[in-house]
């Protein structure tokens, strides 16, 4: 019986085969293909190795440096500046006792998470339109002149931040709400006896209890710092603002698939992938060390 239990069941490989085929075609072969970052890619015939030529071109290109700076700034806004917002949202929602109201707020604010960035871009372009959009109607109420946010270099990154918040505020608060639900109620009861007010209870009980979740979320988000949100930017950028919102992924797309500089684009991808890999592994280790829970 023991021998039987140990025997490998080769038929299980049949069940795994379709997934393996998918990983092979859409992940492993393309990853192996990234060797072309060190080659001059040719559609027919052998692609000659050129060493670090494309990487040297990349770092010598002012456009790439600007792209890198944009990526870091936008990621900083979306990861660091955005970070406290879902926490505040969860804390406030936790104080809402009426369950109907609570459900309404949750169902409403989770919804945008399920809309595509194409749809959200459409909604925001309409909302920010200088001719009759909601934002400019508000401005006119306060006597301000209309403003075209979508084509304004000084405003567009905040448009990205605001639309990201619009999409993710509710959804990203879920993890904190779950953590809040698991706080021992007796902590609050004893604080009540000591006469602690709402804000004091938040500061001295709720926040410290949320700290491990906050650390996990923050560290894991840092692992994706170079992403900055391709779909959002791809759908919200235009020629007037491209210089301040072009990020690594949009750059890779443009030089790769539009300009067909295959090897050059792959070099940029490889650079992003390697830094990203280091960040993710660091995030994984850091999170495991501090909270005992990693990415996998």
């Amino acid at each position: 019986m023991a021998a039987l239990a140990k025997r490998k069941d080769w038929a299980l490989l049949v069940l795994l085969a379709p997934a393996l085929m998918y990983f092979l075609v859409y992940h492993l072969i393309p990853i192996a293909g990234m060797v072309m970052a060190f080659q001059d890619y040719r559609i027919v015939g052998k692609s000659p190795f050129v060493g670090l030529k494309h990487f040297k071109m990349l770092f010598a290109s002012p456009a790439f440096v600007q792209v890198l700076v944009n990526t870091l700034i936008i990621s900083f806004m979306k990861i660091v500046l955005f970070f406290p917002l879902p926490i505040a949202f969860a804390l406030m929602l936790n104080e809402v006792r009426a369950s109907v109201l609570r459900k309404f707020i949750q169902s409403t604010t989770y919804l945008p998470h399920f809309l595509s960035w194409v749809v959200i871009a459409g909604i925001w372009i309409a909302f920010l339109s200088p001719s009759g959009g909601g934002a400019n109607q508000l401005r006119s109420i306060f006597g301000l002149p209309p403003r075209d946010y979508m084509t304004d270099k000084s405003a567009i990154r905040w448009v990205l931040f605001a639309s990201e918040t619009w999409r993710s505020l509710g959804w990203d608060s879920i993890i904190y709400l779950a953590a809040l639900a698991s706080i021992n109620p007796s902590l609050y009861e004893s604080a009540d006896l000591d006469g602690a007010g709402t804000i004091q209870k938040m500061r001295f009980i709720t926040l410290p209890e949320l700290l491990p979740t906050m650390v996990t979320v923050f560290i894991l988000n840092m692992g994706f710092f170079l992403n900055a949100g391709f779909d959002q930017i791809f759908n919200m950028m235009n020629d007037s603002v491209i210089s301040v919102v072009d990020i690594l992924d949009t750059y890779v797309y443009r030089i790769g698939l539009l300009n067909m500089q295959y090897s050059f684009s792959t070099a940029a991808s490889l650079f992003k992938g390697l830094i990203g890999l280091v960040l993710i592994l660091a995030a994984h280790q850091g999170s495991r060390k501090i909270t005992g829970k990693g990415l996998w």
Binding site: A5, R7, K8, D9, W10, L12, L13, L16, L20, F23, Y26, H27, L28, I29, P30, I31, G33, M34, M36, A37, D249, V252, Y253, G256, L257, Y262, S265, T266, S269, L270, G273, G276, L277, I280, L281, L295, W296
Partner: peptide, 24 residues
């Protein structure tokens, strides 16, 4: 009982953390 189970698990982590280039 899956043969090479550990190998496949490593493969999955590789797929998770390595993103192929768009071009490739």
């Amino acid at each position: 009982k899956l043969p090479f189970r550990r190998f496949f698990m490593v493969l999955i982590i590789i797929v998770m953390i390595l993103e192929p280039a768009l071009v490739t």
